[in-house]
Amino acid sequence: MNAPTLTGYNFAYLDEQTKRMIRRAILKAIAIPGYQVPFASREMPMPYGWGTGGVQVTASVIGPQDVLKVIDQGSDDTTNAVSIRAFFARTAGVATTTATADATIIQTRHRIPEAPLTDGQILVYQVPIPEPLRFLEPRETETRTMHALEEYGLMHVKLYEDIARHGHIATTYAYPVRVAGRYLMDPSPTPKFDNPKMHMSPALQLFGAGREKRIYAVPPYTRVVSLDFEDHPFEVNRFDKPCALCGAHGVYLDEVVLDDRGGRMFVCSDTDHCGTRQEQGHRGDLSTPREGSAA
């Protein structure tokens, strides 16, 4: 038996029987893309809602050779991302990184990295409510039947009511998708900006919902289509300006309130992407002048 990193606990915290149970669920999730596989989620040493599903998936997949990146809101340095990264560094002794390109496993809450993912990478999503139909029909017994019969009319009605009321589909995050032409799936509360990144991604996407005890998956190179209507096609969130620090266009931005007189700036939500661009010399409107510029 290998020496555990944290005394008294197994590699990556979970016992082997639990890992096997989760691994079997992951295999079925990959074989049935977008279908939510029930699993006997364990009580983790962090609260439900803090990513216990994602942590269990990562713990069941990760090995000593892996390099782990953890982001929350796109950032490696938010407290919960720091906490989860430290948990795996402590219980599995794995290498961690903030660089998207260097990671073999990326655990995320609410974002998909801006840099395109590559073949062999695994993206693990933390999911609060895995059932895309839950807010339309709270009963599990009912939604299970809807999935079985591929009866998704209720979701179209909901989106259409949005259009009637607001002139737009009023769902901006956790925007429902159809996976491989069959299951309706909740992409987790990522902004709909990220939905197109899921489509035909070279990375394996795994979703863990600990409190709700569900695991689901999108295999690499799988069709992921956001629901829409012919006269109201799916559109991503748009920003008027580029990132104020790195000048990037076409990325997701955080709004930073600078003062109480309406002062605002918009900066990359993906901190690794922003930092990498700045290192490459890209500048935005509000970035500090480059020091020691050779030019």
């Binding site: 197994n10 990959i30 069941s60 090995g63 394996l204 690499p220």
Partner: peptide, 20 residues
């Protein structure tokens, strides 16, 4: 020989085979 790490390595192999 190494139950924890061998199981992980084999699972990853099966998982990626199933994914691809």
């Amino acid at each position: 020989a190494s139950p924890v790490h061998d199981a992980q390595a084999v699972f990853r192999c099966v998982m990626m085979a199933m994914a691809r």
